[in-house]
């Protein structure tokens, strides 16, 4: 496979995953902003959404205040934000178009259809209800793309590169949301358990589509350390860091099989996966969740670079 084709598949999948993630954090922000007491205690949900999306600094260069209007515009529709949903879909479609022949027709039609629909929308005049529908639509597009890749792609290099993109991005997103919410919700000496806290923690789970999963796994009230454990260490939870890394290791092994060569990317993925497998949540909290996540994000980035170095240029 051409390195450029693999590169486009990788980034196409990353951008669709990112679009889905941004839609989820916006959905959560909308939900939290409706709660009584929202905005109190400095917990500005809209600011938090920006930080979760990793776009806070870029936002401040353009807007003076983070509120429902500005954040929605910036994260969903803005042409000035390369990670806005609109730009993610545009970039994904651009990548898809440059490698059309490497996509199945279902995948192409999903992404091209979504892009055409997006062109037809008048994004600036969406009213509140329509905004939620729009976010649902984005999640749906991502789901359909993922599903069509899973169902229709040959299990050859192209498929594995597309998985790599999805899971490197997904691991990044899960780690980010944990990190942001940790800051917002666990200031030192605060007690956990109030209604607002409950909603905040539930919001984390909603952002990664795992509220129900939590109850199935733990059959317990929401507890921050269990939430962290679920999202970091539980292999049965599909968005957990460990689950992402298991898939990454598997996909990289498949690639190594077809080329007959193991390289830095395989070694890096294995190293991170092993570390996660051997971790305990208590240990993580001892070291500091924030520090743990920082390290993880750096390692995840390093894996991304290793994949690019090894295969994509």
């Amino acid at each position: 496979m051409l390195s450029r084709t693999a590169d486009s598949l990788y980034w196409l999948s990353r951008y669709l995953e990112r679009a889905d993630y941004v839609a989820r954090i916006l959905g959560v922000a909308i939900r939290l902003s409706h709660l009584p007491g929202a905005g109190a205690g400095g917990a500005n949900e809209w600011r938090s959404a920006l930080i979760s999306a990793g776009c806070s600094d870029a936002f401040d260069k353009i807007y003076s205040e983070a509120n429902a209007e500005t954040v929605m515009e910036f994260l969903a529709f803005s042409d000035k934000n390369p990670s806005s949903i609109k730009q993610c879909l545009g970039t994904a479609r651009f990548n898809a178009r440059s490698i059309r022949t490497a996509l199945t027709s279902t995948m192409w039609e999903t992404i091209n259809g979504a892009w055409l629909d997006l062109q037809a929308m008048d994004l600036n005049s969406l009213v509140k209800r329509e905004r939620s529908l729009f976010l649902e639509w984005v999640k749906d597009v991502s789901l359909r793309f993922d599903g069509s890749a899973y169902r229709t792609m040959l299990r050859d290099e192209g498929f594995w590169f597309s998985r790599l993109g999805t899971y490197v991005e997904r691991a990044d997103n899960t780690a980010r949301i944990l990190d942001v919410k940790y800051h917002v919700l666990l200031p030192e000496n605060a007690t956990v358990g109030g209604g607002l806290d409950y909603e905040q923690w539930a919001a984390v789970l909603r952002a990664v589509n795992s509220l129900t999963a939590y109850h199935w796994v733990y059959r317990d009230n929401l507890k921050p350390w269990l939430i962290a454990e679920l999202l970091i260490l539980k292999p049965q939870m599909p968005r957990s860091l460990i689950s992402c890394y298991q898939t990454l290791v598997e996909s990289l092994d498949k690639l190594a099989e077809s080329s007959g060569r193991q390289g830095p990317a395989q070694r890096k993925a294995r190293e991170v996966a092993l570390k996660l497998e051997q971790s305990k949540i208590e240990k993580i909290f001892d070291v500091g969740l924030h520090e743990f996540i920082e390290t993880f994000l750096a390692e995840n980035n390093a894996l991304g670079s290793a994949i690019v170095e090894q295969y994509l240029i």
Binding site: M1, L2, S3, R4, T101, L255, S258, S259, Y311, I313
Partner: peptide, 30 residues
């Protein structure tokens, strides 16, 4: 892209090819 697909050949852009010692190569994942 249509013709490349139907022929089963790679659709390359300039940056996918390089020349070494007067021989042309494609950059591939392998």
């Amino acid at each position: 892209s249509f013709l490349a697909d139907k022929m089963g050949v790679e659709l390359v852009e300039g940056r996918d090819l390089f020349v070494r010692d007067e021989v042309v190569y494609m950059r591939t994942t392998q």
